[in-house]
Design a protein around this nucleic acid. Structure first.
Lengths: 151, 151
DNA sequence: AAAGAATGCTTGCTCCGTCAAGTAATCCAC
DNA sequence: GTGGATTACTTGACGGAGCAAGCATTCTTT
């Protein structure tokens, strides 16, 4: 390549290998976990995750925008997830007291029950695809690295 | 929960944290790298990856099914990527000599040039979102763990 | 050598998530 | 306190990726 360019060091062999594995995992892992959840619980991973974060919020309630950020979804994305969950009676939308522009998504009792029914499948999937392969890995170090990715 | 169930140990705090970070990275990392590639090169990550793997194949040529597996795409997914690349003149489809059902995707000279133009953007993105945050991480250990995920 | 099974790839359909534009409510300047 | 900007969320249009059905070719059996 003959064009002038910034001094970018190429990757070494280890970095190259990491990048390719990361590419694979990024694509495949969400797919297989979602497939597990669909097969065993007919609950997409996105909906499971949303229920999970809602269940941990005070009063099982979160503003839409807050929920979107927590779930790593766009605002329109969370609108659609919540609409689907609402149709199943698992969450409700209630207007926000202090700001009538805002909406809270609230986890219903049915939603909590659904989550409690579904979590073993999610846990099993996570074990199967992730934790069963972590022997000899320093978790703390790994978490620390992941936490800074894509920020 | 009162239903009988398999003895699933819940996750400890570290595992819980890892799972959530992994959830975030799986979702966000492909998105930001793709966004970088689009902004700087108008080349989606899926197309870049496809060109890259093709460039490394003998004769810059691969069977569709082989390419799909390598790129972690479904067969129909790779059909569509290759069709888009073909429209841009970056790859060609040529019938497979030894089996007329099969097709090879071949990287054209234009495709190779496109790849060489684009890779600095990809490398920079990978550095920015991944490698710049790996200080103090044992790469070999990490690669080894990732390689076994979702298999 | 002809018919039926299997293989390799493509196409039709659908889902899911993004972006951009739209709507409704609030904040701010004056 | 009224008009214009800003904010919170929703909706419409779009695109990417998967599955299942379809089409063409090859293999297998007799």
């Amino acid at each position: 390549m003959s064009t002038p360019e910034q001094p970018l060091q190429p990757l070494n062999a280890n970095e190259e290998a990491l990048l390719r594995e990361l590419g694979r995992v990024m694509i495949v892992l969400p797919r297989v976990i979602d497939a597990d959840m669909m097969r065993e619980e007919h609950l997409p991973l996105s909906e499971y995750t949303t229920l999970m974060y809602l269940s941990e919020a005070p009063n099982r309630l979160m503003r839409m925008s807050e929920l979107a950020a927590t779930c790593n979804l766009s605002l329109s994305g969370i609108t659609r997830v919540v609409t689907r969950l609402e149709k199943q009676g698992l969450v409700e939308r209630v207007r926000c007291d202090e700001d009538a522009r805002g909406w809270n998504a609230v986890l219903t009792d049915a939603g909590l029950a659904r989550l409690e029914k579904a979590w073993p499948a999610h846990l099993a999937s996570a074990r199967r695809h992730v934790f069963d392969h972590l022997e000899g890995t320093d978790l703390t170090q790994l978490i620390h690295a992941l936490r800074r990715f894509a920020t």
